[in-house]
Computed example of a mutant assay.
Amino acid sequence: ACVEDNDIERAIKHMMAFIEQEANEKAEEIDAKAEEEFNIEKGRLVQTQRLKIMEYYEKKEKQIEQQKKIQMSNLMNQARLKVLKARDDMISEMLNEARQRLANVAKDPSRYPALLDGLILQGFYQLLESKVTVRCRKQDVQMVQASIMRNIAIYKAAVKTNLEARIDQDNFLSPDISGGIEIYNGDGKIKVSNTLESRLDLMAQQMMPEIRVALFGANPNRKFLD
């Protein structure tokens, strides 16, 4: 009976050892499986987050690049406006200097009378009226009167009509005017301004493209020349 008990006890221990070993192997298998699934899930999450981070920074990079382009465009426009303003300022200074020199034209007895002749006759032709009033500087009255007399004859011969022209002795040109004349029709509603200043402004307006090319060179963006 003692021998049988020992055999039973050994059999039980052996069975318990087998069960324990099997349990340990199963636990190790479960741990290994759990670790594998954890690593897979961790890798998936890391990859997902990495993609999100990459996408986030890619968007940020594009935004920064766009902002850089906008800023660069703004800076270029500001620089272009500064260049254009500097050019306009230079042209304005040049025209102001030319205006200051106009006074010398009226002081030249070899040039001014002939210039007045051209300005007065042109005014006659522009108005084509039978009666006109000429306004001039006070110091030019005698010179303008002589020019009127000369040019009435030229006008009559060209147009074949009579012309009465008088100098406005009540209203003279402003002392700021360097020379030249203004001519009005009979009722004073139509005016031809042929002062030296107005002629300079007209000439500057007509020659502005040539002036810009002479000062700053040809515009590379301009495809057609009028």
Rank of each mutant, 00 (worst) to 15 (best):
Q145A: 15
N96I: 07
A86K: 01
V105W: 02
I40E: 12
E22S: 14
K42V: 05
L225Q: 09
Q66Y: 13
A17Q: 15
Q122A: 06
Y57G: 05
A106M: 08
Q205V: 03
R87M: 08
M15C: 12
I8A: 12
K13P: 03
Y56T: 14
K13I: 15
E182N: 08
K60F: 14
L127Y: 09
Q49F: 14
Q63L: 15
E182G: 05
E41G: 05
F216E: 10
Q21L: 03
E37I: 14
R10C: 14
E197F: 02
V105L: 05
S178P: 02
E197P: 00
K68M: 11
A106R: 15
A11Y: 00
M72Q: 10
P209V: 15
C136Q: 03
E58A: 13
D168M: 07
E20A: 14
A158T: 11
E25C: 02
D168W: 05
G43N: 14
L173V: 08
A98D: 05
E164T: 10
A17I: 13
N151P: 02
M203T: 04
G123E: 00
Q71M: 11
Q49R: 13
L84N: 04
Q63C: 05
A23T: 00
M203R: 01
M16I: 15
L202Y: 04
E22Y: 13
L196E: 00
A165K: 05
L215T: 06
E4C: 15
R50F: 10
A114Q: 03
F216L: 10
Q21G: 03
L202T: 00
E61S: 14
D187S: 13
A11V: 03
A86T: 07
F18Y: 12
R135D: 06
V132E: 07
I8N: 02
G123I: 01
K223G: 01
E129D: 15
K189M: 12
F18G: 13
A1R: 03
K189Y: 09
M54G: 10
A146K: 13
Q63F: 14
I64P: 02
R212I: 02
H14K: 15
V3N: 10
S92V: 06
A146D: 12
